[in-house]
Amino acid sequence: MLVLWWTAMFVEGTILFRALYRKMVLKYPLFYMYLSVVLAVDLARYAVYTLHPSAWTMFYWCTQFASLVMGYAVILEILKQALDPYRGAERFGRYSVLGIFAAVFAFVAFRSATASSWSPAATTMELERDLRAVQVIVLMGILAVIFYFRIAIGRNLKGMILGYGLFIGINVVNLALHSYFGIGFHPVWEFVKTYSYFASLLVWTFTLWSYQPNPCSDSLPQPRGDYDALASGTDGALSAIRSHLGRAARP
């Protein structure tokens, strides 16, 4: 396990070194901030694990929440990189994300108000599961907007999405299984958590080795005219085709 730990730190360091060397930190600041925090957390954890093993559990969960919160920076980076050049899609994505957060918090407020025995999370592990689940839902919302508006994504962004998505997707299921099966599941949880993160690091290493931005650029031709004309034009075309099909199929 210690070998994996060192390897993970080495890979994190390599990704950060490449980012500094290729000046990619300026392009994806939030993502590299997340990775820097994770590396710092790993180094601190290693020190605590070897020097003060008695403080390990407490220290682990405190730092785990630090990296969990920093994970939202990755989500923000994905949102920014994917949708920023498309002002309409960005607006759509922003409202979708806000809507998801509002729905989650409304659900939590409703449950805590109506169920007397209900608490957001009985254990720290369940709390992590719930917060990761929110990340999963938000990322799914962003991906839905990307697919809906046919937004082209480059290798770097694809890597960020795949790496982080893989990590949080697997971990939500992993944490849910741990909560359900209890302590007996702990070795499996530990194994899956470690290797899923390692897989994410490998994805990031390959996809973020050099700067490969989204195909979209500032030189993208912007449409002329206004949105209302576009929407009414589409609506008109749809009505025409629909009327045609409807009349054709009617007996």
Binding site: K158, L162, I170
Partner: peptide, 16 residues
């Protein structure tokens, strides 16, 4: 939680 995890993994497969 399994469903949302699986949903995300499915979307990731589409992204890939």
């Amino acid at each position: 939680f399994s469903l949302i995890g699986a949903g995300l993994l499915l979307l990731l497969a589409l992204v890939a």
